[in-house]
Amino acid sequence: METRYRPEELTRLPRSVAYEKGRVVMIDQTLLPAEFRTIELRTVDEVASAIVTMKVRGAPAIGAAAAFGLALYADTAKAKDRDGFMEGFYSAYEKLKNTRPTAVNLFWALNRIRKLVEENLESPLEEIRRLVVEEAHRIADEDVEANLRIGHYGAGALPEGNLLTHCNAGSLATVQLGTVGAVLRVMHRDGTLKLLWVDETRPVLQGARLSAWEYSYDGIPLKLISDDAAGFVMAQGKVDGIIVGADRIVANGDFANKIGTYSLAVLAKEHGIPFFTAAPLSTIDMELKSGKEIPIEERPGEEVLTCGGCKIAPDVDVYNPAFDVTPHKYLTGIITDRGVVYPPFERNLKKLFREGE
């Protein structure tokens, strides 16, 4: 599609993750909003640790970070022959693959580079190294372009007025702009977004720490609310539409997103509020038939027992799923980089992929 704005017209933020020869550079999201700092990672182990500890987070950003982890290996591996290089490559691939189980972009990016390498095994070793680095950069660039298209498609689908979002699917969750973030930024630029309600998003507070920070940084008018205030705000008629991101969308339209999304979807249905998710095609997993098949990451209980490093509960057992699954019956539409998909999702998602072949 033809886009009206360039990325630099929509955000003042730099890319959340990038690669410079011999180092992966990323914004350390665990320090926000108190401190804005970029960190430099020089080993695959450091990149894997950054993904696990959520220094980088958000499905598209995780995918790009993993791709750059393989680029880092390709650039710095000391192997002199193809066999030694490939042994180290598969080891790096496995380390990065085993970081977080739910976000499908991670596996999509890693498998894309693995396929490229395996298709070029007869090429000189230096050529293979170059191809890995170029493909990682291409994955990151494509993410920014996809987000820009999502922003323009979404701006045409969402109602004018006040929107509500959950967690963070903005610039910090992608390479730049965001999925949800691109939609909000285009609507803000167009003057159709009046106010953004931001859920705090317990237990790690991605809404309060990250979304509120980055959207206010770009001048978007917002109000931060506790998660349990969302239903009351809807009941007061102060929400015209809801838009959230996705970590995995499956063939029937069910999708996994940050814990608390399902509750919002049920509330939106009760109040007659349009409910959208936004994600690139790389987040759609057509191999899984329903949301029941999506693996759900369970994170350490310490995230629930503490807040900002302070103990807020006694040492009791904790159940801390990082994501929940929203059934497709609650969805108004899926905003992708190839257009907006409406029900019936199973048929129309298949059609979307066929059209792209």
Rank of each mutant, 00 (worst) to 15 (best):
S49P: 05
C310K: 13
P159S: 02
G272N: 08
S211N: 03
E270T: 08
P159F: 06
I296D: 00
E87V: 14
L205M: 11
I220S: 01
E94L: 15
A66G: 07
I139D: 07
V56M: 08
E357L: 13
P300C: 13
S226H: 08
Y90R: 15
E119P: 03
A65N: 12
V266G: 00
R299W: 10
I284D: 07
T326A: 02
A79F: 13
P274N: 05
A251C: 12
D254M: 15
H271Q: 11
A322R: 04
P274M: 05
E145Q: 10
L264R: 08
D227S: 03
R112V: 02
T76R: 15
V144C: 04
A173D: 10
R189F: 11
T43G: 09
C310R: 13
W213R: 05
V266Q: 00
V17I: 06
D247Y: 13
R338Y: 12
A92N: 14
G207E: 09
T165K: 08
G22H: 04
I243H: 13
A109W: 01
L331D: 00
R114K: 09
L288G: 04
A18N: 01
E122L: 01
W108E: 04
K97F: 15
L224E: 03
T277M: 10
R23M: 05
F255R: 01
F36C: 02
L352R: 11
P274W: 03
A71D: 10
F353I: 11
G241D: 13
W213A: 03
Y90F: 13
M86Y: 10
L163H: 09
R299C: 13
Y330V: 00
M187H: 11
R15I: 02
L288M: 14
R42S: 02
S16V: 09
A92Q: 13
V175Y: 08
V144L: 09
I62C: 12
A59T: 11
G156D: 05
G291L: 13
E40I: 04
L131S: 02
R354P: 01
E94N: 07
T30Y: 06
N105C: 07
S171A: 14
T43P: 13
M86E: 09
V17H: 01
E160S: 11
A146I: 11
P344M: 05
I128K: 00
A48V: 06
A146N: 10
P159N: 01
P327E: 01
G308H: 12
V44P: 05
I284W: 06
A279W: 12
V204R: 15
E119R: 11
D317N: 10
S171T: 09
L148P: 06
D83K: 15
V340Q: 13
G170L: 11
A109C: 07
T261L: 09
I225S: 03
R112Y: 01
G181A: 11
T3S: 05
K115N: 01
V304Y: 05
N120S: 06
K351A: 06
V341M: 14
L72N: 08
Q236A: 14
